[in-house]
Design a protein around this nucleic acid. Sequence first.
DNA 1: CTGAAAGCGCTTACAG
DNA 2: CTGAAAGCGCTTACAG
Lengths: 330, 330
Amino acid sequence: MKVGIRDVARAAGVSTATVSRALGRGPVSEALREQVEEAVRATGYRPNLSARRLRSQATQTIGLIVADIRNPFFTAVSRAVEDAAFASGMRVILCNTDEDPAREAMYLRLMEEERVTGVIFAPTGPASAGLAGGDLDFPVVLIDRSGPPGAHDSVILDNPAAGTALVDHLVSRGYRRIGGLFGSTSSTARERRAGYEAAMLRHGLSPDIRTVAPSAGAAEAEAGRWLADSGRPEALVLSNGLILMGTVRAARTLGLSIPDDLALAGFDNETWTDLVEPGLTVIEQPVAEIGAQAMRLLFERIAHPGQPVRKVVLSGRMVVRGSTRARRSV
Amino acid sequence: MKVGIRDVARAAGVSTATVSRALGRGPVSEALREQVEEAVRATGYRPNLSARRLRSQATQTIGLIVADIRNPFFTAVSRAVEDAAFASGMRVILCNTDEDPAREAMYLRLMEEERVTGVIFAPTGPASAGLAGGDLDFPVVLIDRSGPPGAHDSVILDNPAAGTALVDHLVSRGYRRIGGLFGSTSSTARERRAGYEAAMLRHGLSPDIRTVAPSAGAAEAEAGRWLADSGRPEALVLSNGLILMGTVRAARTLGLSIPDDLALAGFDNETWTDLVEPGLTVIEQPVAEIGAQAMRLLFERIAHPGQPVRKVVLSGRMVVRGSTRARRSV
DNA sequence: CTGAAAGCGCTTACAG
DNA sequence: CTGAAAGCGCTTACAG
């Protein structure tokens, strides 16, 4: 019934060592290799990966811990990571923390128990307990968000520049009273806010900032309160795709016309952003590149554990659509 | 450096057997249990899951094989499955076939090598090679799509009824020339098409059917050709969320007004379907329920291997929006 | 190139 | 309740 390597060895008339070598990359004569392959077919043998990992002390596994798999940004990055991993013969364990530090800690412990080769990680906060301790048994590459400075390799967007670019764009289109709605948890949101703030001040404008949990529901509620006020901004900068979606929904509910009553500029070029009239202006992140670079940094770290910590900063690309059309002169 | 169960045993002054029991559910005196827990803390011990799985012959792992993780339907189902799995102390391996039978076969083989406890599976086609063979070493529960009749437990939507409901709704709103754009690969699309077809004939109308690969890009191209024709339908039924999105995009490109030039009714109540003006009428699938029921069937199958094959059929819920507003009388 | 033997880190009958 | 010992299914020095 259950067929193990001994059954294959018997069927092929060789030792289990030879079967193991024939299936791996050990030196085996062509004749014996064929005998083994034939025996594998005949018996329907499937190697037991738990045994293989235990014995070889190589799990060939990388962990991917993301903050919110409902966010298409992370879905897209995951695909890039998985493609790169499979190309290198590694499997990936995908974990979703839901921005919950407790789940994050649990998954990091799980990664230890799985004896993963390395982890790609978007931490809930820069002071993530798992990272602060610094006693992880595997190399970590951070994506999207920063951790303790200089502690881990990372791949992030040039967030301050992106925040600044959105403000500059809105100003060039004639908007002055520009508010910003930013996520409250991540370093990413903080950096985008800093870019927004610096640009506003440079233009001689007053920053007008609110923060919110990074979900569409929370953003809709907060934006609803904000926009109901008669002194509402002429334009809003939103720090990610979920917050952008919530804000659009709030504007709809209030019957605000975009961009005449309210201009919008956000992040993440998700598939729906061009379908919502009049099209939403966004900073597109190079999601595939982020995933691919993270895998590259991880493999290089595994190969050269001692090399200096590296930080890859990628630029976003602004996609201009109707939601930031030039403001009608007053 | 590397701490194993022997180190913990030594630190606690007990045998490795006692450590193992204290960490699991074996019978251990309260005093020794505390000594062990203290030693675990002191040493920073993390059990090696590969060793545990090999020895106990219980992987506590279920595989989840979906056809397209970019499709929010599968993302949502995944979350429900993972929640249920973690609540039962199991981990889940998520695999994405991209509707590719070769990748599907590869993942099924991987599941064998992982010695998973069971698999929840949305097959690329009803004649999926992996299912047809029937020689899998683990129980399988199908979701969203059917396999060989009577071979596996399954949880699916009442697709014929849903297809029929959309036609009935459109007819009640005054539409007569109703086309249908359906996915070409899945049993689900076929069943929805059958429901569409039956309803059309019952209303004395001529079915007008096209099929397409189940992606937004393919749907946009096909709908673009179809709708450019002067004899285009007054309304379209779309067989899933991706095809609906592609069709909306094609209508936009052609400058068609929804629903005046073209009414749309589709599947999957995704977050963007109410944001696209004038709102899209869809059949919402009970995604959380699908995931939860699949886990339930899987656990019951594991507990009672011999019991008859079961099929859970869930009903969709129609969400009516502006895209099917009553047709202006001619 | 090939095989006999040891051992990866656990869990679990088996005795006591 | 507790411990000594066997063994899960592989891979890999070690000899030949």
